[in-house]
Design a protein around this nucleic acid. Structure first.
Lengths: 315, 315
DNA sequence: TATCCTTACGGAATTCGTAAGCATG
DNA sequence: CATGCTTACGAATTCCGTAAGGATA
């Protein structure tokens, strides 16, 4: 058993059992990958992949039983390397953060500024994506820390820790009818609505609230970020619903007016997610603590070691 | 990084940094081991071992940081192999159990008998040793299951689960003075005492009880097992204190008389221990359940995956 | 001086990529 | 017939054990 064999297996699963792709990803030849897998199977005495003719199509039952351990081994190997990098690289290194637009645009900048001041030698990489993409980046190791206002822990390989809670605000052009009198869901639904796309920035709690009130608002436009929403609200296309945090840096001369909507939509939670059972560079823990003071290294490490449900193939 | 390098490092730590011994243990040459370690150190860019001249004397700080991951990797590799053996070997295989004398002699036989009936194809290996030796056997992989009436979990690599509780009994030759009237610690201490050696079969609770009563009984003989104790009690050397379970199969014509001592000494707990974070063959979980019905596979697996710093709830 | 680790060296085994073969959709 | 996996083969590399060297207790 060797790590190249394990990498081949992991990559084969990730790339949909296409060994040609795997070979490219691992910078090696396709027959090489084929051999690595075959040799591991021979050594273990089980077929890991289902072969239809000469094509791989899926995992066998033993393959499914073995795969979690393959992933664990490769992840532990990375943790081992990180453990030694702490000594070889000292305070230098690369920290890769994956976040949704809202987080990257509004929540993260203060933390990033502070972190750069205290850790000038760490190269920060920011990746933006949907919650699903963020989870994928964490699992594949592209990112070390994931931040989103969405469940990031429905994958057993990840742990998510709540950072802070936030609510939505309504934005309208100045002089808008909604600015007169109290705002209810009913009144709000009378206007065309502009807000986030499904799956982003608490969109669920918005849909939820309307559904419970038996209202079907006219969603004229959905966007990935508050800036786009603001733009179209300013153009008069409708009223906007955005995360309150997106309004904090509005300029004085803004044509927009905000209405607090914390009572209309349920409270959202932003979480930070990391790989379960893994080790991060020391400064990664520092960043998390900079972003959310209560998430000290100890807290995060305890969460990382919390039990994990490795699925065992039924026998 | 490869597994042979990791094995060399692990074995070097286990064998007190003597690479000559390591080479023998790994069935390879000493320069080979030297090279494996050097190459891993080069790849990681850190020195794992402290070298005084040409001798290895201990772990460096990076070495200490890296070692837990080395152990984890090697253990996960074994779990991976076990996962596939479940399919290649089916119901056949080897189950290695380490237990103290008391457990092996009195508590285990019914479970072993039942297990052999339900799993005729599994080869059972029994190892006997002190609690420390049992822990060592578990950690090194010589044994899969450890059973002792003693803390088996002060090593973070292991989890211990309580099986059952038991108490001591006093044994005396027939016609002994202690058989008349109630037995107290005071009266007991008037006679020479024969019991287990320190560290075995609840000896602590015996010492504890006497110490609290400010008594210093005359321990004329200490033995590793109840059979030896019984023998010398029969010879009239003194009164014996043994685990009650050791008296259950006394023949009708025995010259010994037992006095229940559950009120004199504190209650003891027998535990079963397994490696934390590891996978066992399916039948190993079957054996544990045969021995202690409440320890189902699920219970044991959850415990194996529990974080290290959570203490096991006492019964 | 005995023990123990490192370096040096050469043969053997392994590894890996290219090219050809063959099955599938 | 295009895609994708396996087999075959040869070159390059790696691996590993023996033998010699040097340091320490």
């Amino acid at each position: 058993m060797n790590f190249q064999q394990l990498r081949s297996v992991r990559e084969a699963v990730r790339r949909g059992f296409n060994l040609t792709e795997v070979a490219q990803a691992l910078h090696t030849s396709q027959p090489g990958v084929s051999r690595q897998i075959r040799e591991l199977e021979d050594e273990l005495g089980v077929e890991i992949f289902v072969r239809v003719g000469k094509r791989l199509t899926g995992l066998t039952q033993p393959g499914a039983a073995v795969l979690p351990w393959v992933e664990k081994l490769l992840q532990d190997a990375e943790s081992l390397q990180r453990a030694s990098e702490e000594f070889t690289l000292g305070q230098t290194g690369v920290l890769s953060i994956a976040a949704t637009h809202s987080q990257a645009r509004y929540a993260l900048p203060p933390a990033v500024r502070d972190f750069r001041a205290t850790h000038p030698q760490v190269k920060l990489q920011m990746h933006q994506g949907s919650p699903e993409q963020i989870m994928q980046m964490l699992i594949t190791g592209v990112a070390d820390i994931g931040i989103a206002s969405h469940v990031l822990a429905d994958r057993p390989e990840l742990v998510a820790l709540p950072c802070y809670r936030w609510t939505h605000s309504i934005i309208v052009p100045e002089g808008h009818a909604l600015l007169d009198g109290p705002v209810t869901l009913q009144r709000l639904a009378e206007f065309p609505v502009i807000t986030y796309e499904v799956g982003l920035t608490g969109r669920e709690s918005i849909d939820d609230a309307f559904r419970r009130a038996n209202l079907r608002p006219d969603m004229v436009l959905t966007a990935m970020d508050a800036d786009v929403i603001k733009t179209y609200v300013e153009l008069g296309l409708g009223v906007g619903i955005v995360a309150s945090i997106a309004l904090e840096d509005e300029p004085e001369d803004s044509k927009l007016r905000a209405i607090d909507a914390r009572n209309l939509f349920s409270i959202n939670t932003t979480s930070v997610a990391v790989r379960r059972g893994g080790l991060l560079r020391g400064f990664a823990y520092d960043f998390i603590e900079t972003f959310a003071g209560h998430l000290t290294r100890d807290v995060v490490e305890v969460a990382q070691r919390a039990p994990q449900d490795i699925e065992q193939a039924p026998l």
